[in-house]
Design a binder for these strands. Structure first.
Lengths: 319, 319
DNA sequence: TCGCCGTATGGGCAAATACTCACGCGCACC
DNA sequence: GGTGCGCGTGAGTATTTGCCCATACGGCGA
C-alpha cells in the first residue's frame, strides 16, 4: 500500500484537477475533456476517481434546525463539551459517511490549536472515516498517541489503522501502541506492560489533552466479535453479565460502568477514564445498533463529546 | 418511506438536507424525493439551490504539483508569509470561484487562533467570495475592522459588503468604517477624520494583526472606475502618471510605491502600509487583468501573502 | 517469439439530471 | 372585486452522466 512514486501522483493530479473543474468550476465533463485534452470518458473516470479517493471534500455549510435541537438536547442532558449531529442518510446507508466529515472538523479544530497537544486515538471504522475525511494540515506541534494496538489475535495488522494515516496527513510525531490488542495470557500482558516503550506510550495516552474514540456495541454484530477478538460464546457470556458497549476494547454496562471481566487482564490498551472539560473524550459513532452503547457511555461520562447522526441522536435521547 | 413528518422549518433546511443526501449520501434525486416526500423536480431544485446558496462546500483535498511549484516560486521571489495557488478554471470563467475556497481557508486559519486578533478587511468581489465560501464558526474572540467605508459617491451602500457578512458568520465584534469611501473635498475629509468614531476604527485598522485585501487593476476595467469612484478621464490621467494597481482605494505604481495623487486627500480609508511577518497583509485576487497590479504590490511588500489562481501566478512570475 | 492476462480506452446506451415552458395560486395594486 | 405580477409547481424535453462492453495495449511467462 505504499504510495507510488510519480505515475499515480500525476494521475491524482489529473483527477484532482478534473474534479476541481467539475465541482468548483461547474464545467461539464465534455468541457473538462476538451480543456484537458482528454476523451469524455477519461474525464468522467478522473472525476469519479477523485471522489472515490477522497481528493474532494463536500461539507455542509448550514446547520439544520433539527440537528441543532438534538445537539442542544444532548449537550444539556449529558453535559457535553462538544456535540455535533449530522443529518441521517436514511436506512441501509453507512452512517459513517455522514459523520466522518463532522468528525474531521472536530479533529481539525483541535489540530488548529497553536499550542502543543497530546491527541489520543482509538480505532474503528468511524475513526478511519474521520481521518479519510480530514484535510491535510501541517500540525507538527501536536503528538498523536494510540490507545490500543492494531495487531489482531492472528498477528495481522489490518485492523483499521488510524494513527499512521493521521500522522501522515498532519506530519505530527506519533506513538502507535506497539503491541497486539489482546494477548493470550495475563503473564504475557504483564511482560508487555513492563516494556519501556509500552510504558511510555501508555503514559502519554493517559495524559492526553483530548481523546477520540469509536464506540462499539455489544449486540450480535459487536465489532469485538466481527474483528475476531471475541468468539460468539464469549460474547454471549459477556452479554449475560450486562455488557452494553465498549470503548477501545474495554467493556461497560448499561450505566457506563466498566465491567470486571476476565478479558480485561488480557487487554493491552489504555482504558479511557472519566472525561473532563479540560481533557475531553470525543465519541465518534452512529447507527441504530450503537444507541444503547452510546447512551451508557454518555451517562457515566466515559465520553463527554459526541459526533453522531440524526437517528442515533434521537434514539439516544428517546431512552 | 418518509422519515419524520417534521416539516423542515426553512427552505434552506430542506435544501441543505437534500444536498447532503445527494453529495454525502450518494442518493439519486429520485431517492431523495421519496425519502423526503417530494417530487423529483423539487428535489432537483433543492439540490441546485443549496449549491447556489453556498450551503454546500466543495474543497480540494490534494495539492496539485503545479500549484505547489508556483506557490514555492512566489514565496521565494517575494518573501511571502502565506501563499496559495489554486487551479485555474479556464478562460471565460470567473476566477473568484476558484480562489474563494482557498481564501476562506486562510481566513479560517486565522479565526481558529484561540488568542484575540484584530482582522482588517478591504472590500471587493474576491473578499466577498471568500466570506461566502467561509464555514460559519464561532470566533467571538476576534475583532473585525474595515479598512474603508462601503458607501459610494451617490450614497448607496451596495458596494460589496464584506465585514457585516463575515461578522454574521463568526459572531465577532465588528467595526465598519462609518463613512463614504470618497468624499468631495479635503475639508469634508478632515471633518470626518476628526470624528471620534472614525478615529477609533482607523486606529484599530492600523493596528490589525492580519489584513485581507483585494487588489484592483488600473487598466480600462479598473474596479475604481466600474464602481463609480473614478471617471474615465480621471482614470486615464492616473494611468499616465504610472498607476499599476490599487489596494483599498490607494493607488500605487509599477514598483508598488503609492502615488501622490490629488485623489488621496479625498480618500477616507486606511492606507495599508508595508506588511510584516508579524502583521501580514494577504492579497486575494486573480485574473489576467490583475497580474501587473499584483506583481507591483508584491514587489514593494504592500501585500506579503497571496491567494490566487494558476494562470495569474504564472503571469506574475513571468514578469 | 508467441500467447495470455490484466488493465486502460473509447463507443454506445440507459439512467439521471438540468432546463424550459405553461399553468395555477396568492398577493398587491388598482 | 378584478387584474396583473411574481413565484413556485409539475410535465416534458434536451443534455449530461454512469455504466457496460468490445477492443487495444503492454508486461510477463512459457
Amino acid at each position: 500500500m505504499s504510495l507510488p512514486p510519480d505515475m499515480d501522483a500525476s494521475i491524482d493530479d489529473q483527477a484532482a484537477r478534473a474534479a476541481w473543474l467539475y465541482y468548483v468550476g461547474g464545467l461539464t465533463q465534455d468541457q473538462i475533456a476538451s480543456e484537458m485534452g482528454l476523451s469524455r470518458q477519461r474525464a468522467q473516470r478522473l472525476v469519479s476517481r477523485a471522489v472515490a479517493a477522497g481528493l474532494i471534500h463536500v461539507r455542509l455549510n448550514h446547520h439544520l434546525a433539527r440537528c441543532v435541537e438534538l445537539e442542544a438536547a444532548l449537550r444539556e442532558r449529558f453535559g457535553l463539551v462538544r456535540c455535533r449531529v449530522m443529518p441521517g442518510l436514511g436506512p441501509s446507508r453507512d452512517p459513517v459517511r455522514s459523520i466522518a466529515p463532522a468528525a474531521a472538523e472536530e479533529m481539525e479544530r483541535v489540530l488548529a490549536e497553536s499550542g502543543s497537544r497530546v491527541i489520543a486515538l482509538g480505532t474503528g471504522r468511524a475513526l478511519r472515516g474521520m481521518v479519510d475525511a480530514l484535510s491535510p494540515v501541517e500540525a507538527p506541534q501536536h503528538r498523536l498517541v494510540s490507545l490500543l494496538g492494531n495487531i489482531a489475535l492472528d498477528g495481522s495488522a489490518s485492523y483499521f489503522e488510524v494513527i499512521m494515516r493521521l500522522a501522515e496527513k498532519v506530519r505530527a510525531p506519533h506513538y502507535p501502541m506497539p503491541v497486539p490488542v489482546l494477548v493470550d495470557t495475563v503473564e504475557e500482558n504483564r511482560t508487555l506492560q513492563s516494556l519501556g516503550a509500552v510504558r511510555k506510550v501508555r503514559g502519554l495516552a493517559q495524559a492526553a489533552d483530548v481523546t477520540f474514540v469509536g464506540v462499539g456495541q455489544m449486540s450480535e454484530d459487536a465489532p469485538l466479535m466481527t474483528d475476531g477478538f471475541l468468539t460468539a460464546d464469549e460474547l454471549h457470556e459477556i452479554q449475560r453479565v450486562g455488557a452494553a458497549g465498549e470503548v477501545a476494547g474495554w467493556i461497560y454496562d448499561g450505566q457506563g460502568r466498566y465491567l470486571d471481566l476476565a478479558l480485561n487482564a488480557r487487554l493491552t490498551g489504555v482504558r479511557v477514564e472519566i472525561a473532563t472539560r479540560e481533557r475531553p473524550v470525543i465519541g465518534i459513532a452512529a447507527g441504530e445498533a450503537k444507541i444503547v452503547a452510546l447512551r451508557a457511555a454518555l451517562t457515566s461520562g466515559i465520553i463527554n463529546g459526541l459526533v453522531t447522526d440524526e437517528p442515533t441522536a434521537a434514539g439516544i435521547l428517546a431512552g
